Amino acid sequence: MAGLRPGEVVAEGLKDPDGPRLRVIGRIRTPWGPDDCPRNMGTARQRGGRFVVELDPDLGPALEGLAVGQPVILLYWMDRARRDLLRQSPRHIEGTRGTFALRSPNRPNSIGVATVVITALDPGDATLGIDAIDCYDDTPLIDIKPWTERADLPPGRDG
């Protein structure tokens, strides 16, 4: 595990949590590794590449109703992130912030969320092509949800 930056705070009780178990439903395939992964979706989209969601083959029928061009929300497990930081000192801001005020992968439950656009769909192969994502290759996928304007835009925001 990486060392702490100035101002960062660790919760000792979160170093080895034992909680609810999630089922990994597939893997996210990206061109990124620890040394070259973009830090946000905007940069991932600018850099481009091949991005594929590979589901457990038994889950292909669960893709029914999705379509190319549709936005979906991916929930994934950032399995190589720290899980014990309460305050962090990100490189892109001055000072520290609480973990819940950041999109950092380092959090008590390292769940990542990304809204992506489906570029290819093959229920028979249980795969989705997506426009981009900012996670390491072979990241475990825990859920896919359709993005809908009615449900996902905060009140008072235009689509």
Rank of each mutant, 00 (worst) to 15 (best):
Ala2Asn: 13
Gly3Met: 13
Gly7Trp: 00
Glu8Val: 02
Glu8Met: 07
Val9Cys: 05
Glu12Ile: 11
Gly13Leu: 08
Leu14Ile: 06
Asp16Lys: 15
Pro17Leu: 05
Asp18Val: 15
Gly19Ala: 12
Pro20Asn: 14
Arg21Ser: 05
Arg23Trp: 14
Val24Ser: 14
Ile25Lys: 06
Arg27Asn: 07
Ile28Arg: 00
Arg29Cys: 01
Pro31Met: 03
Asp36His: 13
Asp36Ala: 09
Cys37Tyr: 02
Pro38Lys: 14
Arg39Asp: 13
Met41Pro: 00
Met41Phe: 08
Gly42Met: 07
Thr43Ala: 13
Phe51Cys: 08
Val52Trp: 11
Glu54Gly: 01
Pro61Ser: 12
Ala62Arg: 14
Ala62Tyr: 10
Leu66Ser: 05
Gly69Gln: 01
Pro71Thr: 08
Tyr76Pro: 02
Trp77Cys: 01
Trp77Met: 00
Met78Leu: 12
Met78Arg: 15
Arg80His: 03
Ala81Gln: 05
Arg82Thr: 05
Arg82Asp: 03
Asp84Gln: 13
Leu86Gly: 08
Leu86Thr: 06
Leu86Val: 11
Leu86Lys: 09
Gln88Leu: 11
Pro90Leu: 03
Arg91Asn: 10
His92Gly: 04
Ile93Met: 13
Glu94Ala: 13
Arg97Glu: 04
Phe100Pro: 01
Ala101Pro: 04
Ser104Lys: 06
Asn109Tyr: 05
Asn109Pro: 07
Gly112Ala: 00
Val113Met: 12
Ala114Tyr: 11
Thr115Ala: 06
Thr115Trp: 09
Ile118Leu: 04
Ala120Met: 09
Ala120Asn: 07
Leu121Gln: 03
Gly124Phe: 14
Asp125Cys: 15
Asp125Ser: 15
Ala126Tyr: 07
Ala126Lys: 06
Thr127Arg: 03
Thr127Val: 12
Asp131Met: 04
Ala132Asn: 04
Ile133Gly: 00
Cys135Pro: 00
Tyr136Phe: 14
Tyr136Met: 10
Asp138Ile: 04
Pro140Asp: 00
Leu141Cys: 02
Leu141Lys: 01
Ile142Trp: 02
Lys145Asp: 06
Pro146Lys: 15
Thr148Asp: 02
Thr148Asn: 06
Glu149Ala: 10
Arg150Ala: 08
Pro155His: 15
Arg157Gln: 15
Arg157Ala: 14
Asp158Glu: 10
Asp158Ile: 11
